[in-house]
Structure formats: C-alpha cells, structure tokens
Design a protein around this nucleic acid. Structure first.
Length: 500
RNA sequence: UCCCCGAUAGCUCAAUCGGUAGAGCGAGCGGCUGUUAACCGCUAGGUUGUAGGUUCGAGUCCUACUCGGGGAGCCA
C-alpha cells in the first residue's frame, strides 16, 4: 500500500493509500464515523462506515482520544464537503498510540493556559498556519537578498560593544569578563558592507527591555541589510520592494493558511510599491491636527456603538434565558453570551485607551520620539505601509547621519505596517564623516575607545551607506492579522516569563 | 519603573443588594448513515489563587501577598 501525505492526496484520487498522522477531531453518527486526521501537511476527513471495517476496529476508532497517532488506509475520493477537498473512505486502520484526555480541546482557551501547553499548542490549526507562513516569510527574506546581489554575513551573537544603549542588553559571563547578547548586527555589518558592498545578517536578537506589550519579545528574529553607496531615497525603495516581495510570496504560497486564520487578503494584495512617505515633522503635524482628533473621536464613536450593540444583545439573550425556552436554544444562547462578554471586554479596553492615546497625540511636541500609540494612530490612518523619515537628532542613535540640509534631523526611517499594526522596520543612513561621528559619540557620553574599529571604517575609504532591520515576528503578526507577536514564534520569550 | 484589569469545575465563563455555587465545552455511558466547533439524553466533576480581617452569614466588602492580562516609557 502506497504511503502518502495529505497535501498530495490530489494525485491519488480513486486510489488506495495509507496516511500516518494524529487524530485532530472526530464525530460519530451511529453507523458512520468522521475522523479528522492531521499529518503535518494538512487535514483530511476520514470516513469509517460500519460495514466496511471489522466491528472491533469500528469500536476502537469510535473511542479513540484526540491526538492519538494512527495509520489509516482507504480510498481517496474528491468531496466538496471535506476540509481539503479530498476525503479517505477507510478500509483499514492501525492505532499506533492511543491518547486520552488531551488538554487542548477544540474550544476556546485562555492565553496563559495555551502558553503553558505550548509544546502541544503547536499542533493546533492556528499555530500550524502561522508557522507555515513564518517559514515562507523567512524563505522570502533570504530569496530577496540572495537574488539581489546581497552576501550573507553572520554577525556575532556575543558582543563586547553595545549597539546602542547598554541597559537593554542581556549580560553574559564570558570566562569572568562581561559580554552581551547582541541586539543588532549593524555595526559589524557596516564593516562587511565595505568588503562586499551589499550584505545582510539574519539571526536572533536579544533585548532586555522591560516591555510587556503585544509588540515585544526579549528574543526575536531580525534581518538586517546594509548597503554601501546608498542614499535615503534608495534605502526606502529597497525597503518597500523587500516588504512587498515578502507579502507577495505569502499570498502565492500560503493562500489557504491565510484564509484559515482569517487574515485580510484584499488588504495584503494592496501591499505594493510605492509606500506612503511622511517626514517626522509631517507626522507630528498630523498627530496634533484636527484631522487626527476627528479620526480618534470617530473611532471612539464607533467603539461606543459597538459596545451598545453588544450590550443590548447581551440583555436580550439574558432576558430569553429567564423565560421558558427549549434546552438547545438555551445552550446556544449561553455560548453566544460567552463570546459577547469577551468582545465587550475588548471594546471596553479600546474605549478606555482611546482618550489616553488622543491626549498623548494632541500633546505631542516636536523633538520627542514617536510613541507606540502615536505610531498606531498614523498607521490606522493609512491602508499601505508608511515610511516616517527625518527624526530629530536628539531622539536617535549616535550613528545616524545628520541631514546636511537640516542639522536638527537625521536621515533615518521607520516603516509602519498599516491598519494600526505599527513599526516593523527601523533604519537609517549611517554617519560617514569621521569628525561628525566622534562628536556624536561624545555628545551621547559614549566611550570613544569602544568604537575605534567602527571609526576606522570612516578613516579608510568612507562611503555613504545605510541599512535597516526588519522584525520577523512583527512582520508575521501583521501579515497573519495576529494581535500579539508571541503567537508568531514557536517558543516565545517574554519579559520575566519563559514557559518552555 | 509606573498605571489599569483579573484569578470560581480539566477548559471558557456566569452567579442581581452580602443570603443554598451554575452553564457550555471536555471526560464517561447510551442514541442517530454525511457530520463540519455535529446533534440528542444521562452521569461524574468545587476548600471560589494564598493568608488574615469585617459580618449572624463572604465567590461577593477590606488589607497584604502570589500569579496572570493590557498599556506607558523603550523598541524590531
């Protein structure tokens, strides 16, 4: 009997095959059982009719627990009613290991519970889809740079010099001397760019920031390209082509996964160059403008309407529950009430945060860095990614090149994913003038002796150059429509919390 | 470091003014030949996060602690 996988069932229509996998869900209806099997490549509904198998097997399969492993043999047939378009009419099955009391049921669970069961949660459909998309994103990243003349350069994970600020680094005892886990490969990458021209590094990155939000992990994956002989305009074009190519690849390779997790496919199809371009000063004007005020007020209205609708529906259901109604209706109502109450809690949070964010935006003054909520507002006001460029010098790192036509700002950019997701890229043109760089190092009270090798790059054939870093988990979260990036890495490391 | 919210059955959540602790899912048993989170009937399942306090009486009020969620700052 030919073994195959669920994703290639289409090649075996009307043939006998064997599938090996795990029981994902099952239903029974007297003389027929429906077993949903997962094998790592997809889901397949297997039909067991009582008179097609032995009584003993029928009985065993009928009591098989979720996530039991098994091999099933049967006839492949196309059927629209089935999940993947094909189903298996089972003639024989072998239980490899039966499981009982699998903790993750097909119903809803809280996040803490799921993270504690992370080793098992990875098997569930949503996580499987996100993992497949993450795989495509990473492959698309490598493909893009490899196809465009970039050379991969692996930068060290243990670093002596701090990339930016030392308080956000994890310290490691390196034979009695302190070293730090890298938070960027950029400085090393700049030296490699002077060798190869166009380079990139791709690996894990570590930040000891005490940030407990949906956008933060302490360990995450970042890809950083660095290019010699490039100006800000060229860097933005590189970034928008890059991001667009990733989205296009996911749309091409993972349509079914995107659909399955409810991603906004039409919105993703709009992600093509050019992206929006705003200067920091323009962004600042938008935040303090009447337009932003109206926009936020409109949002608040919308949230309040949602809240009212949910509340009146809850009241209606609760009233029904008090009266004399059929048991099945009562059960349906109970399930809907639970859904509605959690929706209500979400809307309440939005209503609570809206005025705070509005105030932060209205009080925004030129010179401050853009905050998370400010980025969210700007991003919510656009349907494509936005580049925000030319930030105030004092809010940014020492290595960013000052704009020679306006010494108050630097030639940097952030790329904000649209519809409220926020920052996925940060980048800049690097200061290439030796004396200016020394001045910036001193201004920020950094020790020059730690940067001697970095300054050498400006001594020996300095050229205009720049690059950026893209966060993989933030990109995956944006593309898949996940609210929290912890679902976008298999084993998330969060502030003060590591489950497995 | 700061602000807000929460902890009740294995899981997700109810419990009005402080007055006998309840649903759904999951589990077990039974029924049904096409189910899509199937459906129907029955059964089991609880020291309400921990430690104190107020009260005739505490899931509910007060204090402390533990754990968790969201957000600010900072950032990919």
């Amino acid at each position: 009997m030919e073994k195959t996988t669920i994703e290639s069932l289409g090649q075996f229509a009307d043939k006998q095959v064997t599938l090996e996998g795990w029981l994902y869900n099952s239903r029974a209806s007297g003389k027929v059982q429906f077993l949903i099997i997962r094998d790592g490549t997809g889901l397949c509904q297997c039909i067991i009719e009582k008179d097609k198998v032995s009584d003993e097997l029928f009985e065993q399969l009928g009591h098989l627990g979720q996530e039991s492993s098994l091999a099933v043999t049967g006839l492949v047939r196309a059927d629209e009613r089935s999940v993947g378009g094909y189903e298996l009419a089972v003639t024989d099955a072998k239980i490899i290991a039966s499981a009982t009391d699998y903790p993750i049921t097909p119903k809803s669970h809280g996040i803490d519970f799921l993270l504690k069961q992370r080793h098992l949660h990875l098997r569930s459909q949503g996580q499987w889809c996100i993992g497949k998309i993450r795989h495509t994103v990473i492959d698309a990243i490598r493909r893009f740079f490899n196809d465009n003349g970039f050379t991969l350069v692996d930068t060290p994970i243990l670093t002596a010099a701090a990339g930016e600020e030392e308080q956000s680094l994890f310290e490691v005892d390196y034979f009695g001397e302190p070293l730090f886990l890298t938070q960027t490969g950029q400085l090393h990458l700049e030296s490699a760019a002077m060798s190869y021209g166009k380079v990139y590094c791709f690996g894990p990155t570590f930040r000891a920031e005490r940030s407990k939000t949906r956008r933060h992990l302490t360990e995450f994956w970042m890809v950083e390209p660095e290019v010699a002989f490039i100006e800000l305009v060229g860097l933005l074009e590189l970034a928008e082509n890059f991001v667009s190519s990733i989205v296009a690849r996911v749309l091409k390779d993972n349509k079914s996964q995107l659909e399955s997790i409810g991603a906004d496919i039409p919105a993703l199809e709009k992600i093509t160059p050019p992206f929006y371009r705003l200067t920091y000063t323009e962004a600042c004007e938008i935040l303090t403008s009447q337009r932003a005020k109206d926009f936020l007020a409109g949002q608040l209205e919308k949230f309040k309407n949602q809240k009212q609708q949910i509340e009146s529906r809850i009241a209606q259901l609760e009233e029904e529950q008090k009266g004399q109604i059929k048991q099945w209706k009562r059960d349906k109502n109970a399930a809907e009430l639970i859904e509605l109450r959690s929706e209500l809690a979400e809307v309440d949070t939005k209503i609570e945060n809206n005025p705070k964010h509005a105030q932060l935006a209205a009080e925004f003054r030129w010179g401050k860095d853009l905050g998370g909520s400010d980025e969210t507002i700007i991003s919510q006001m656009h349907d494509k990614p936005i580049f925000v460029t030319h930030y105030p010098k004092q809010a940014k790192a020492f290595y960013m090149k000052t704009d020679r036509s306006n010494e108050n700002v630097v030639l940097n950019f952030d790329c904000l994913a649209p519809e409220g997701f926020g920052e996925i890229i940060g980048g800049s043109i690097r200061e290439d003038d030796f004396d200016r760089l020394v001045t910036r190092i001193k201004e920020q009270n950094l020790k020059q002796e730690n940067y001697e090798w970095y300054l050498d790059l400006r001594k020996y054939g300095s050229v205009p150059h720049g690059g950026f870093g893209l966060g993989v988990e933030r990109t995956v979260a944006w593309i898949t429509g996940q609210k929290h990036i912890r679902q976008c890495i298999p084993f998330p490391r969060m502030m003060d919390k590591v489950y497995i």
